[in-house]
Structure formats: structure tokens, C-alpha cells
């Protein structure tokens, strides 16, 4: 089933200097394993290429069923000097969560799918 990441996961972004820091939380272990396969740094970089000028670094946090992404050079210079309206990248989590995924049918039963 084709869906957006936000329909099955929580995604919040924050900032540090010119980097955006995005956390993705899976609702259960099978979805976590699926997201680990799907959300590679290369996929994330290509989807967010208009925002991220630097690189994408990923950390796995299995105890929270979470993936943490560090997006470098993503805020147009950093909060205090950036010209962007979203100088803190608060919206980047939301944009990240619009990544489209093909969720395997076997995972459908184990997950609550939020409406679009």
C-alpha cells in the first residue's frame, strides 16, 4: 500500500546551528525494521535535496524504535543569520514525513494508518 510516512510514524525536527535534526518514530518493531530498510541516508537526501545542502547522517535508536537523522547545512545559514522564514527548520520534520512509502501488505494489520 502506498502511503505517506506521517500516516504511520511520528516525525519531529529541531535545529543546532545550520543543521536540522530529525527524529522518526515507528509504532512497532516490524514497521521499524521496514523504515530502517526504506529510509536510507541516500533516499532522505534525494527527497530533501531542495533543503539539505550538506550530508545526511543516520543513527539507529532501537530502544525507542526510532531513527535519528542529522541533516547538515539545511537552514540557510543558521537561526540567527538565516533569511528563511523557517529559520529553525520546524517544518522540516513535516516535509520529511511526506516521504512516500510502499508499505508491505504483511505490515498493514499491525499498524494504525492515520488519514491523509
Amino acid at each position: 500500500m502506498k502511503l505517506f510516512l506521517y500516516q504511520i510514524a511520528q516525525v519531529r525536527s529541531g535545529d543546532k546551528a545550520n543543521d536540522s535534526d530529525v527524529s522518526v518514530f515507528a509504532p512497532n518493531e516490524s514497521v521499524y525494521n521496514f523504515l530502517k530498510e526504506s529510509l536510507t541516508p541516500a533516499v532522505v537526501k534525494s527527497v530533501l535535496s531542495s533543503i539539505v545542502d550538506g550530508k545526511v547522517v543516520r543513527f539507529e535508536v532501537p530502544n525507542l524504535l526510532a531513527l535519528k537523522f542529522l541533516l547538515t547545512d539545511a537552514l540557510g545559514g543558521g537561526a540567527s543569520g538565516s533569511l528563511r522564514i523557517d529559520n529553525l527548520g520546524k517544518s522540516i520534520g513535516g516535509i520529511f514525513s511526506t516521504i512516500e512509502l510502499e508499505l508491505p501488505e504483511t505490515l498493514l494489520k499491525a499498524v494504525h494508518i492515520r488519514p491523509v
Binding site: 511520528q10 519531529r12 529541531g14 535534526d21 527524529s23 518514530f25 543513527f59 525507542l64
Partner: peptide, 16 residues
Amino acid sequence: KDTVKEQMLYEIHDPS
């Protein structure tokens, strides 16, 4: 648990 975990990882970079 869902509201707490979002803040737990917020802006911390490397969780270890």
C-alpha cells in the same frame, strides 16, 4: 510514551 519520546530525541544529534 509517544509525547515523551519525541522530546527525548529532540535536537540531541548522536543518541549514544
